[in-house]
Structures are given as C-alpha cells and as structure tokens.
Design a protein around this nucleic acid. Structure first.
Length: 136
DNA sequence: GCCAACGTTGGC
DNA sequence: GCCAACGTTGGC
C-alpha cells in the first residue's frame, strides 16, 4: 500500500518540463524539518503530485519515488536527506491552486493551510480527486 | 512588489 | 527557555 505526497517546486528553479527532460531528479536542498521528515517516510513506488509554486500555481504532473531517502548530496550536514523522483506522466491539464481552494474535499490540504511546506503527505482521496479534476 | 506566515538565530 | 530580529517562502 503506497502513500501519496505532493511536492512543490518553483518552475524558475526546477520545472516539470526540466524534470521530464532529465528523466529523474534528486530532490535535494530541503532545509525544513517537517519537509525532511516527509522525505524520510517516502517509499519506493509512492505517488507524488508535482506542483508549480509562484509561477503557475498548479499541480502539473505525477511522479514516483525511485529511490528512498539518502543523505542530501548538497550538504555535509547529516540532518538533511534527499530522495530520487521519476516523472510518471503529466496531468491532462493542470489543476490550479484556486480550483483546489474552491473544492470542498481539497480546501483543507496542507498546500492551502500550510503554504510554506514544500513536501507534504496527501490522502489517497485527495490524490484521486485532483486526478479526476485534471481529466475533466 | 508587498506582506503574511512561519522558521531560525542569537542575545539575554 | 524566552522572544525579538531577521530571513525565506509563496500567495496576492
């Protein structure tokens, strides 16, 4: 039974398009304990929604965990970890933050309630609801 | 560009 | 251990 997550990235820093082009990504540079704890809990095969923050403000694609947490290669500080992600597929259409905010089932997810958290768990139902919106 | 929310740092 | 100051994130 895999889990579901949402990760954020500013497209100017690392976009979905670049992620797809490169075929996988080391999700490094996380320097927030709560986000780090979530990275540690990720299991291979977990599904991840990829969200564009700042420019775009929408869920744009689906990724999966291809390698579970390991020490963040961008720092010697042992407190921080990374995971490796692989793109699965883009959403048929992006699901915007405003759509998420106005949907009853989605209005309370951390993306909305805790806007600064960059790696967060989501319920299966939330994942499925977002996919459903994207296919409409 | 502004600012609210929040995390971190450092003086006491 | 508290809290003010400061820095960062990200929505608007």
């Amino acid at each position: 039974m895999s889990d579901f997550w949402l990760v954020k990235s500013e497209p100017s820093a690392y976009s979905w398009e670049k992620f797809v082009r490169e075929g996988c990504a080391t999700w490094d540079g996380v320097r927030n304990y709560q986000a780090r704890n979530n990275l540690r809990l990720m299991k291979k095969g977990d599904r991840i929604l990829f969200y564009h923050s700042v420019q775009g403000q929408a869920v744009v694609g689906i990724a999966t965990v291809s390698k579970e947490s390991f020490p963040d290669p961008t720092t010697k500080d042992p407190r921080w970890v990374s995971v490796e992600l692989k793109p699965v597929q883009p959403l048929k259409r992006s699901v915007t933050l405003s759509e998420i905010k106005t949907n009853k089932e989605l209005a309370n997810i951390p993306l909305v309630k805790q806007s600064r958290l960059s790696v967060m768990p989501i319920e299966k139902k939330v994942y499925e609801t977002i996919l459903k919106i994207s296919s409409q």
